[in-house]
């Protein structure tokens, strides 16, 4: 097909959008290799010294581990309850109930995060758990990342031909076996994307963590914020770089093992 002027214009617009989205990230990565004392441009030489400072700082370690645990639990728990909720809304709820329920389920996306955080804060102090044992913060992360799993699984279910389930039943499989062998493989791509989203978002959440964290247990974004309040050296950029690297590796692993390319958007 011959390229028209518009093809070039579209390409140019696309490139600009990517530059706009990617340049801050690239800049941060770049600055983490800075040899200077401050987070500033132009860079004064190249070094790995800020990574050294970072890895010598056990507070970042602990915060990263805490964030990782929160994100992992959020992804796993939502994988189960998000799927159950999506199945109910897509397959069992009456048509009159299905739409209001769908809106309700994505509620955490619609309500400002800080409101959810305040509500949960009141709730957990009222029932006497308060901010002990990271229960509140974990629940907060689960609540806020729940819609990602729900939406992805629900959309997979809406594209799923349910006569496959009936075929399995007629072939002698009970409900559970039918779910495990037929429905689950069909929604797997949606489920994995949803969990991946939940993980990445949870890793990144700030407001919820700030209000609900238990004493002394910072998440990585909180730790970074604390650090930046008193220091303005490229260690922060190094933290960001490592964090981007971890996310990137996670996406890569998922892509290689189950294949994001099989997902149809």
């Amino acid at each position: 097909m011959r390229k028209t002027l518009w093809d070039y214009v579209y390409t140019a617009i696309l490139v600009l959008i990517y530059v706009f989205l990617m340049s801050p990230i690239l800049l941060v990565v770049l600055m983490s290799f800075s040899g200077g004392e401050f987070l500033a441009l132009p860079m004064e030489g190249v070094s790995l010294r800020w990574f050294e400072t970072l890895f010598a700082n056990s507070r970042f370690y602990d915060a990263a581990a805490h964030s990782f645990r929160l994100a992992l639990v959020s992804a796993l728990v939502n994988g189960v309850i998000g799927t159950l909720a999506a199945i109910y809304v897509a397959h069992f709820a009456s048509p009159r109930l299905a739409n209001p329920l769908r809106v309700l389920m994505v509620g955490p996306l619609l309500v400002p995060e800080i409101l959810t955080a305040i509500a949960l804060l009141f709730f957990f102090f009222e029932i006497g758990i308060g901010n002990q044992y990271s229960v509140a913060i974990q629940v907060g992360h689960i609540v806020v990342t729940f819609p990602y799993v729900f939406l992805n699984v629900a959309s997979a279910l809406f594209n799923f031909d349910r006569s496959q389930e009936e075929a399995a039943r007629s072939l002698g499989a009970g409900r559970w076996l039918t779910f495990r062998r037929i429905t689950l493989p069909a929604i797997k791509p949606g489920l994995i994307t949803g969990c991946l989203f939940a993980f990445v978002i949870s890793f990144d959440i700030f407001n919820i963590s700030l209000l609900l964290k238990s004493v002394g247990n910072n998440t990585l974004p909180l730790e970074l914020f604390d650090y930046l309040r008193f220091n303005f050296d490229p260690t922060a950029a190094a933290v960001a770089t490592v964090s981007i690297f971890i996310t990137f590796v996670a996406v890569l692993i998922v892509d290689r093992t189950v294949g994001l390319r099989s997902l149809r958007f």
């Binding site: 496959q164 009936e166 075929a167 493989p185």
Partner: peptide, 17 residues
């Protein structure tokens, strides 16, 4: 239950896995 009826069924959409 459908799974206890010992039936073979062919669907309009075929419903292959």
């Amino acid at each position: 239950m459908p799974e206890h009826r010992d039936l073979g069924m062919v669907f309009q959409s075929y419903a292959l896995f």
